[in-house]
């Protein structure tokens, strides 16, 4: 009980703390997405463990699912590789436990679809996630209409429930999307699946401005951001830049597990460099 309460206390502050620290530094956060268990459990653990040193400020860890309806080919294939290598929800939580043994500061957000959580059992999953050191959840197929399912129970455990806002979320709907959102707001910059086309600098800036009118939460921008230059451009207006498909593609293209680890960390370093120089370059 006390262990869990402690874990909860720590997790409440971790995401907020990170954004406050970066605000003091005057820069955006780099949020990196990798799929848990891709391409195999050991390699994936090594990728995860090395992300903070490579420059990731916040980590999104994908929970693989057979039917990722909102994901493009890169993340679909990453999930398939992970499932084929035997990944499941318990192993994903175990990965985070191991990560937390040596890193108490980097926020970890689990991202995926509802069914694997539902099947695990919401109560059991939230307990285990909090205990493992997870800070937040992004569950793509749980809109605010279904906040009673997971969002509100997660908040009770001190886990942030991070909501996606999209170009189709108009001003009338935005308050509903924001209502129970915590940690940060994830702006999906294009209507589409992950890894597809990208929005212009002006469109991103305008969208971030609009969201800021409605919310004090930090705004992360993602979908279609692949290069350090692009990350730098988005980092000029957004509080965080999310990169996923490009990193997962690196795993796919690697010829060996070692190359996958090095590839992901090397791209992360380049992206971090882009994010760090963004506001100076202005």
């Amino acid at each position: 009980m006390t262990a869990q309460a402690n874990a909860t206390d720590v997790s409440i502050s971790r995401i907020t703390q990170r954004f406050e620290d970066l605000k003091a530094e005057g820069r955006s956060a780099l949020v990196t997405f990798v799929t848990a268990g891709d391409p195999d459990p050991e390699t994936s653990q090594a990728i995860l463990d090395g992300l903070p040193a490579a420059g990731a400020d916040i980590i999104e860890l994908g929970m693989p699912f057979t039917d990722p309806m909102a994901d493009g080919p890169a993340i679909q294939k990453g999930a398939q590789r992970a499932l084929k290598a035997g990944q499941n929800q318990r192993k994903t939580l175990e990965m985070v436990r191991r990560f937390r043994a040596h890193d108490q500061d980097t926020p970890i957000v689990l991202m995926g679809y509802y069914n694997p959580i539902y099947r695990y059992g919401v109560e059991a999953f939230l307990n285990d996630a909090a205990e493992a050191g997870i800070d937040g959840l992004i569950v793509v197929d749980l809109p605010p209409e279904h906040d009673g399912e997971l969002c509100l129970p997660a908040a009770e455990k001190g886990l942030n429930f991070i909501r996606l806002a999209t170009p189709t979320t108009d001003d009338a709907r935005l308050p509903k999307v924001l209502e129970n959102t915590s940690g940060f707001l994830y702006y999906v910059s294009v209507a589409g699946v992950t890894g597809a086309g990208s929005a212009s600098s002006e469109a991103v800036e305008k969208a971030v401005e609009r969201l800021k009118l409605h919310s004090r939460l930090p705004v992360a921008v993602g979908f279609g951001i692949k290069t350090p230059e692009h990350a730098a451009m988005v980092a000029r207006s957004a509080d965080a830049v999310v990169v996923g498909s490009a990193l997962v593609n690196t795993v796919e293209q690697a010829e060996s597990p070692q190359a996958a680890i090095e590839g992901v960390h090397s791209l992360t370093r380049a992206l971090a460099q882009g994010v760090r120089t963004a506001r100076q370059a202005r």
Binding site: M69, A70, Y114, V140, D141, L142, P143, E145, H146, R163, L164, A165, T166, P167, T168, T169, D170, R173, V177, V188, A191, G192
Partner: peptide, 12 residues
């Protein structure tokens, strides 16, 4: 039943 879809589709 329900409406378990991504936010992009919700307004639609």
């Amino acid at each position: 039943g329900g409406q378990f879809v991504a936010e992009t589709l919700m307004p639609l």
